[in-house]
Simulated assay, not measured.
Amino acid sequence: MSPDPSTRSSGRPPTLREIADKAGVHISTASRVLRQPEPVDGWSDSAQRVRQVAEELGYQPNLWAASLRTRKTTTIGVVMPRLTDGVVATMFGGIEEAATAAGYSVLLSSPPDDLDAQRKAVEFLISRQVDGLMLSSIHLPGTDFVSSLPIRSLPVLLLNRHIDVGLPYVSGDDRRGGYLAGRHLLDCGYRDLGVIAGPDHASTSRERVAGFRDALAEAGLELPPHRIVASDFEVEGGVRAATQLLSTSTRPDAIFTVSDTIAIGVLGVARDLGLSIPDDLALVGYNDIPVVSQLPVPLTTVRSPARKIGATGVQNLLALMAGRSVESVKLPIELIVRASTRYQTSDSSIPN
């Protein structure tokens, strides 16, 4: 319904006094009614009349004034680099869905994955008076970084990555995921294994590699240092690392990468070197981004519950904001076997 221009000055939003007068109620009644985000069943006729008049006049609540009264902005701040990454974007989708369902808005800052940029992002979000904060790209060891942030009593939750600084976190069970990848390659019969790791400051990378090593140690095997190559989480990083691992006469017969984007880079290098997947080289990724099931050779990978990580993070942050204690959570993961690995026909027994 269009606003009634005869009730107020042109171009000026209606006041509570104008709404109360036209609805025939006291101004305190109008204020109380309009502070409710949605109509409540069983409201009186006068309350319903206030809502109707407010709609007729085009009334919009002053959220800033309301936040000054309540000291709440119903806004969650999120620091999340690499939003162009499919996994990160899916995680953020889970955050937005859960926050919206709870009546909260999300204020996102997506800085580069370095400490100075992230500190500025946190300071920016705090200056916007967010009610809680989620950090998804914390660096190991991270103690000095966290202690330097002006978070004071602001509820803070770590997402995806985590460090030992007493803050609760929500992540996938990355060590278990690395273990499943290693165990699968061993069960398939592969023995000469390589790993392309992510940045050393990322707990996700460290734990996935550690889990992979766990699987080998369980089988009485070790991963030689020269078979682990560091990378970033990008395709180009996978290309550089794969070139180092594969451009020798003693290349591995299987590679585990700590992200699917790295694995895509490996596939490009294997193609350029004339290597067949999985006949010449088996490959396991991590995260199960949608594209990897549609590759010419579909990728075996570890599926990370990215959307659920985001949604669970919001639920736990809201609990912190309500003053409740929250335990850290590692969500279960799943190995998805596709054509980039296959079981060998030769004797591939390993110790149980």
Rank of each mutant, 00 (worst) to 15 (best):
D4E: 06
P5V: 02
S6A: 08
T15Q: 06
L16Y: 03
R17K: 13
E18H: 07
E18Y: 07
I19L: 08
D21P: 05
D21R: 08
D21W: 02
G24C: 13
H26P: 01
H26V: 05
S28C: 07
S28M: 15
T29V: 15
A30E: 12
R32A: 14
P37M: 04
P39I: 04
G42A: 12
R49E: 15
R49K: 12
V50Y: 08
E55V: 03
E56F: 04
E56Y: 11
G58E: 02
Q60E: 12
P61D: 15
W64I: 15
A66L: 08
S67R: 02
T74M: 11
T75Q: 12
G77R: 05
T84W: 14
F92M: 13
E97P: 00
A99P: 00
A99C: 10
A101C: 02
Y104C: 02
L107R: 05
P111V: 12
D114Y: 11
D114I: 14
Q118Y: 05
R119Q: 08
A121F: 11
A121V: 09
V122E: 02
L125F: 06
I126P: 01
Q129K: 15
V130G: 06
D131W: 03
L135T: 07
H139M: 15
T143I: 10
V146W: 02
S147C: 08
L149W: 14
L159A: 10
H162F: 15
V165T: 13
L167H: 07
V170S: 05
D173V: 05
R175V: 00
R176N: 10
G178K: 00
D187P: 01
D187A: 14
C188N: 10
C188S: 13
Y190E: 06
G194A: 15
A197T: 13
H201E: 09
R206P: 02
R206Y: 02
V209G: 02
G211E: 14
F212G: 00
F212E: 05
D214R: 11
D214T: 07
A217S: 10
L221D: 12
L223P: 12
L223Q: 10
I228V: 14
I228Y: 00
V229A: 07
A230E: 14
V235N: 03
E236G: 09
G237A: 03
A241V: 01
T243W: 11
L246R: 13
T250K: 13
R251N: 10
T257S: 12
T257C: 14
I262H: 04
I264D: 09
V266L: 14
V269N: 06
V269C: 13
G274L: 06
L275H: 09
L275Q: 04
S276G: 00
S276H: 09
I277G: 00
D280R: 01
Y286F: 15
N287V: 15
S293Q: 14
S293K: 15
L295W: 02
P296N: 02
T300M: 11
R303P: 01
G310E: 07
T312C: 14
G313S: 04
V314K: 01
Q315P: 02
L317Y: 04
A319D: 08
M321I: 11
A322I: 06
V326R: 08
E327Q: 15
L331M: 03
L335V: 05
T341P: 09
R342F: 12
R342C: 08
T345C: 03
P351R: 14
